[in-house]
Design a protein around this nucleic acid. Structure first.
Lengths: 203, 203
DNA sequence: CATGTGAACTTGACAGTGTAAAGTAGTGCT
DNA sequence: AGCACTACTTTACACTGTCAAGTTCACATG
């Protein structure tokens, strides 16, 4: 019965997940600055030092939140792809739009995922690959745009850089006030650059 | 004589600049977490509450650092452009490479510039435009790639998004360990997407 | 069953942080 | 000289992360 995670261990039962959940809540409500070990503990109904037994300090909690946040992120992207038009270009556009919308809706979580080595260790580590659902989606969506003889990672890095940069700059307000409702303007125009894909292998 | 900023006012003379400078130092040495009002004050040789008279709290200091950092950033980009090949494509590549190198060398400063609304207020504000040296450079470098009838801001946003995203993802370690020395690999391949510029106005 | 072993959590403490209020010293103006 | 004003200091407080030492409970072992 190693599968069943329901077993109440001592007082709380499954505190670790509760702390991560509380952390994500705080993140959504008050951004990065609002994420605090003590507030997470309070929200989970335990004392301020309890988290120390489940994470290695604040950084450990952030790492755990990055893991869980990445799962939410991946699920969000998958839903976006499935809900959009089922063509190569349609899926490419959907994953990018999903990326942006996730950033707008879950700004704090995205910051934890990509901020301060949050994810680097996770994905780069040999054991972390299985968490990389979003990477598989990206690979899958980009595949039709990879010319023969070109490393797929190049195309993936191009798409990822473009949408990641656009999302973060948008979040930073560099493209004017965040026109959230479907965005319409800047997004489609910037993503128009992807119409150049697939690029010829080399001149 | 309102122009002359040299006048020693009281004890320190020009404390504000010293605090910003100390802040940038701390940023370079220990990253975002090391940037502290009290440490800045200590490094400038004043008491811990002195900064309150020059900035509105920590956020105010960060804003001031973002301004100064943006000036350094702009100068860095200009130098990169001038040092590179003098062709349209050469300048486009140089500004992007300069962007990446600045990120690698001054990670903390870049984070303050673009993190947490650091710059948004600065550039979006009517009085802040004059600080936007880097934007003028970007506009200038992108100009040859803007087709007739297309808003130049679209091209600028495309280039900016791509290099910004690539730089941040690189910094986050998503593209493997940061191969700092001229980078060689991923950078040139990803920037190859810009070979598609100028894009035809619309299909 | 008594006992102790260890995990989960609490309590208490400490240094460091941002910030606000009140005090002090030097500047400049009348 | 006197006075206001600015620049800075001092003091204080709430909050943070982290550590060390208890406490409480589940459970295995004698």
């Amino acid at each position: 019965m190693t599968e069943n995670a329901d077993k109440k261990k001592h007082h709380h039962g499954n505190l670790r997940a509760a702390l991560v959940s509380a952390g994500i809540e705080l993140l959504e409500e008050g951004g990065l600055e609002a994420l605090t070990l003590r507030k997470c503990a309070a929200r989970a109904g335990v004392s301020h030092a309890a988290p120390a037994h489940h994470f290695e300090g604040l950084q450990g909690l952030k790492h755990a939140i990055a893991e869980e946040g990445f799962r939410l992120f991946s699920a969000h992207l998958q839903r976006a792809i499935e809900a959009g038009p089922q063509s190569d270009r349609g899926r490419l556009n959907s994953i990018c739009r999903g990326y942006l919308l996730f950033g707008l809706q879950h700004r704090g979580v995205l910051n934890v995922i990509f901020g301060g080595k949050g994810l680097a260790g996770l994905v780069a580590s040999p054991s972390g690959k299985k968490e990389a659902h979003a990477y598989l989606l990206l690979r899958q969506v980009c595949a039709p745009f990879v010319p023969e003889g070109v490393d797929p990672q190049v195309v993936e890095a191009q798409v990822w850089s473009l949408i990641h940069g656009f999302t973060l700059l948008h979040l930073a307000g560099e493209f004017g006030p965040p026109a959230v409702p479907e965005d319409g303007g800047a997004f489609d125009q910037v993503m128009g650059l992807l119409d150049a894909l697939p690029m010829p292998p080399k001149a």
